[in-house]
Design a binder for these strands. Sequence first.
DNA 1: TATGAATGAGAGTTCATTCAT
DNA 2: CATGAATGAACTCTCATTCAT
Lengths: 221, 221, 221, 221
Amino acid sequence: MRVNLEARAAAAENRKAQTRERLLDAAVAVIGEKGPDAASIEDFVAAANVSRGTFYNYFPTTEDLLRAVRRKLIDALTIVLDAHLPSSIPAAERLATRLHSHYALVSSDPAWGWVVMRLEATRLGRTNAMEVSLDRMYQEGVATGVFRDLDPVAVRSVIFGTSRMVQRDILMGLAPPGHQERVVAILLTTFGLPPQEAERISAESARRAAEIQAKSRQRAA
Amino acid sequence: MRVNLEARAAAAENRKAQTRERLLDAAVAVIGEKGPDAASIEDFVAAANVSRGTFYNYFPTTEDLLRAVRRKLIDALTIVLDAHLPSSIPAAERLATRLHSHYALVSSDPAWGWVVMRLEATRLGRTNAMEVSLDRMYQEGVATGVFRDLDPVAVRSVIFGTSRMVQRDILMGLAPPGHQERVVAILLTTFGLPPQEAERISAESARRAAEIQAKSRQRAA
Amino acid sequence: MRVNLEARAAAAENRKAQTRERLLDAAVAVIGEKGPDAASIEDFVAAANVSRGTFYNYFPTTEDLLRAVRRKLIDALTIVLDAHLPSSIPAAERLATRLHSHYALVSSDPAWGWVVMRLEATRLGRTNAMEVSLDRMYQEGVATGVFRDLDPVAVRSVIFGTSRMVQRDILMGLAPPGHQERVVAILLTTFGLPPQEAERISAESARRAAEIQAKSRQRAA
Amino acid sequence: MRVNLEARAAAAENRKAQTRERLLDAAVAVIGEKGPDAASIEDFVAAANVSRGTFYNYFPTTEDLLRAVRRKLIDALTIVLDAHLPSSIPAAERLATRLHSHYALVSSDPAWGWVVMRLEATRLGRTNAMEVSLDRMYQEGVATGVFRDLDPVAVRSVIFGTSRMVQRDILMGLAPPGHQERVVAILLTTFGLPPQEAERISAESARRAAEIQAKSRQRAA
DNA sequence: TATGAATGAGAGTTCATTCAT
DNA sequence: CATGAATGAACTCTCATTCAT
């Protein structure tokens, strides 16, 4: 009897998680297409194939859903990177790989890209996990003498601003072939690397990012 | 009789223009606060203190209003610059001044900054007047040997992306003192100027931008 | 568990049908009073005592409602007749009974009459079920030699036009006693019957139509 | 000086009448196209090329306009007939000609036809000038022994109902060639004429109606 | 009188949220 | 927990009518 109850509880737990997952996936798809402002709860529940009422069992407010979506998406990137970007790699290469991984994910999963971009523009405050991580990489580069010692806040504006613009270009189909490589190379020269080396590292990192993505996909399958 | 009619028509024309201006000003205020997606026509007419119906006498659709607002705002910047940024100034200085003027306007008129930023993210296609103008300045710099010969599309991503981020930082109060100067200096080094000269030009251009703004204000008053 | 779910679904289905019926009944009342053009959704929901939003759960557009109303009303007549007008009755008698049944329903249920009349004049294409049915009766009469062999289209204009006018007279209280009997008799002579017989058949058919209506009412009760 | 004043007053009077006429013509055109319910004052003034305010100087309420329009249209028919349908013609011929004139006008000026039909369905009470006139013709026919002595109210239902239906058929393009002739012939047999003679009179009257219309057009030109 | 900008009541429509089942 | 019918506030848009010029 007890076993039965426990099993049932576990099954219920499982179903719950599944429904939640379905709602999140649906939300990503819907937001990617219509944007977070135009998307209605009706759209979410229709795409997730659950009832209106069920939605509220999982997300008391729309904002809760958006936060959860954002978390899910950021995790998607972080997992890819954390698993495959050892800290033994030098700072410049790591920073470049980090950026290329982002662009690669945007290219291969535009829905992901749109949602991340659109959620940034919303009332939800920003997550700074990414800022912190990039800041650290830059400081490492300064410490090892490959990066110039620039003001961290200014650097952040340059990296994030440029990256968001590149992301937008990719999503809108405005990025010519090789755009990402060139932009990352420019950023590396900005940080102090000689042009030639910057280009080499950018190209190399693009390749590494592609490999990481491929591996992480194998794993998922 | 004829004079009378003409005078009447002129007066009517005048009143019309005033109402339109009231609506545009109100729209700037409202959009700056709530964003173009959350703003309702109700908000606009309440802020402009006109009736619902009047709105439609001027703007058949909300999009028409947004376009008019954007035009008005871009004109605000362009007029300032066109009047006071002679093409005799070398490319690096002009580019830097252009950016600093933009930041100065954002700082002194945050509503302007918010609206410009938020309108960029909307369905309205973007105006490329600014792109073209900056592209030209960069090419001039390349021609005169002060800028490296980089891919124009990549350069554009860096300039616009970084600028938008700086604008956001200013608007959110996240820009520390001197932020703009440092970022512009970094951009100039990216384009090939030696760090010291880049910093000098950035600081100088910031000063020039402030002067231009002051002059244009005097004029308005 | 399953029984429970099924019962629940059935109950829900039932409630839905009730609401729909409430809306349709309300629509008949409202349209009968104001006409389909002047009637607003507000009127419908107020008369049905449901909320604005509920309306749209049932009828995406006003036209959908009008179509449903028309269907409901036409069914009301057709059901009565189909059940009680055996085809064994000769053509002249059947045609006359058909007309008198229509008039009887208009007299006893003016709302029905108004709505049918007003819906005819609307953008909704007309139902031709009635046309076809009357055409057939007339042709039968021609085949059995009781009716003259007149152009069917012309006959249709006479029957329908006259009937609509009689209906209007009844609804506006302009029909003197015996009006229907006299008009139907005239139509029968038009179609070739001798005056005396036409009058006899018209009177008889009026009686039969009354009986049919009485029976169908008993049944409903 | 006095002459001047008088001349000016006359000119003013003239302009007033012209404006009114312009509004009425515009209303006929607009109502014919959109129907009296869908037509807005905006439509009227735009078509008449006068200002909104002017409209109210001529027609305090929309109903006033509709009444005036109806009057104008009915006059259009009456003028045609009164001028050219001498009372010396026998009753059957006159009645038939009257009907054919109506159909001819509908055919040659559909806007006229639509407006007359649509105005009938409106809240404006009906004009009974036409009823009275047709009643009289029928009674004359009875007195001279060509028509059967039928109930006048019933006759009226048959004539008007059928005529309205024919009008609708013409306007909707549903009337086959010769439809009007056949229907009028049927009506004449209904009233007691032998079929052959009915057909002859109908055909003849159709010709006469066409002539009358042609003459009245010459005159207008 | 003629004008047309301004008005605001009211119609149509959407959608987040509640709640009985 | 899941469901989905019901709700009503909020929004967009139309149009007859007014009124200062």
